[in-house]
Design a protein around this nucleic acid. Structure first.
Lengths: 226, 226
DNA sequence: CGTCGACTTGAGTTAACTCAAATCATGTGG
DNA sequence: CCACATGATTTGAGTTAACTCAAGTCGACG
């Protein structure tokens, strides 16, 4: 159903013996999704989990009124939907392809044994879930204890760190997407970008953002007022 | 350092062979904390993890201005601080005893081997982290997509479910604590309890809350307006 | 009985939201 | 190469949930 080299390329399965990889790829389904296509919905039965091969996937919550809170964006090599395997059986959120994406699906049974036999897979999973827990902790902190400018600053600083401290950033998501990631709405994000530009903290042109005052941003991200 | 029967009573170690329990209890430190005493601070090096034997522990984030967001309350049998073992090495939040508590500390090295040798411990941990991830997902949803009355309703319904659908609830935390759990402040919580009482949704007297209109609460928790 | 912590209430402020509309960017078909 | 359609972004005006600060009130315990 899927190619062994694709399975072997997944960090989660790093160091897995060749025959196990073969077995896994025999049962994994290789699926494609178009931009905007739904992969699963909150409440769906979680009969397995997914790994992004190419493209990008958004995992998000939806409120009754239609507001969206993005929990996480996943790119190539990253697994998602595993939580349903270990607790609760149902997906706690929605997943949708942000662009044309190729995605592997591993059915649940394929997996129980694998983990027992391969402690390294279990360790990888533990590390993975821990990292995600840490991210969620940060998101909760942001939502509860920071205002939008603080969250935006934290995000920009995170991007800057990811690029070895570069101050020339190019958003890899739309601003509406970024708003959803920060727990706000596009209008608010737009106004705050404007304000931060006027104050000389950043320079913003479309998806290109240049950081002008790193310390100013840091103080904002820590919780300093405007 | 600690008693084997205490270690054996921890659900995480369920089904662990006797000699492993002995080994673990030999290296686990049995510590006591007074009400309000700090167990660790955000940013501290995580050289191990903890399990509550008795009492209660609050894990929380603190903002610059002193507002607190409770992430989780832990009771007897529950481990906390494990995230630092698998990712990041440092605690992402603060922990403090809410009351006189006895707590076991397991140093990091005690553990790496244990997991490799005992798949069931690894599975227990995976399940544990998954449940926590699910809770955090719900908390993020609450903070981002619901207003305080919705969060409070969800919490009351959760308490009611925990008590087999009973409608007579007794808070086991102070209202200030509850406010922090819901991501708000005591004043706001107080006003909203008042409003919900006036509307006949609940009856509130000190820490005793009686649910009068289950459906009304459910509609609020789903995101319906007041 | 006085004190301390927990809780409530009042008054005023504000960040962020909603709704509506204008503007800009991009890509497609003619 | 232009004109329009579509989606992304910005701007404006008005509203509101929840916050801050300040001042009670309540209740339990020494």
């Amino acid at each position: 159903m899927s190619r062994p080299e694709d399975v072997a390329s997944i960090p989660l399965f790093e160091g897995l013996p060749g025959d196990e990889v073969e077995q896994l790829s025999a049962i994994a389904a290789d699926r494609s999704f178009r931009r905007g296509e739904s992969i699963f919905l909150e409440g769906d039965e979680g009969d397995g989990f997914y790994v992004v091969l190419s493209g990008r996937v958004k995992v998000f919550k939806l409120s009754m009124e239609g507001k969206e809170q993005t929990l996480h964006l996943f790119g190539p090599g990253e697994p998602f939907g595993e939580v349903a395997l270990f607790a609760g059986r149902r997906f706690p959120a929605n997943a949708e392809a942000l662009e044309e994406s190729r995605i592997l699906f591993f059915p649940r049974e394929a997996f129980a044994g694998l983990i027992r036999q391969n402690p390294s897979v279990a360790m990888n999973l533990l590390a993975l879930l821990s990292v995600r827990l840490r991210r969620f902790t940060a998101l909760i902190e942001d939502l509860s204890l920071k205002e939008v400018p603080g969250r935006l600053s934290a995000y920009l600083l995170y991007l800057s760190r990811q690029r070895q401290g570069g101050t020339d950033l190019a958003l890899d998501v739309t601003k509406a997407q970024l708003a959803s990631l920060l727990g706000t709405i596009p209008e608010t994000l737009s106004r705050i970008l404007g304000r931060m530009s006027r104050q000389g903290l950043i320079e913003s042109d479309g998806r290109r953002i240049r950081i002008l005052d790193l310390e100013g941003l840091e103080s904002l991200a820590e919780g300093g007022g405007f």
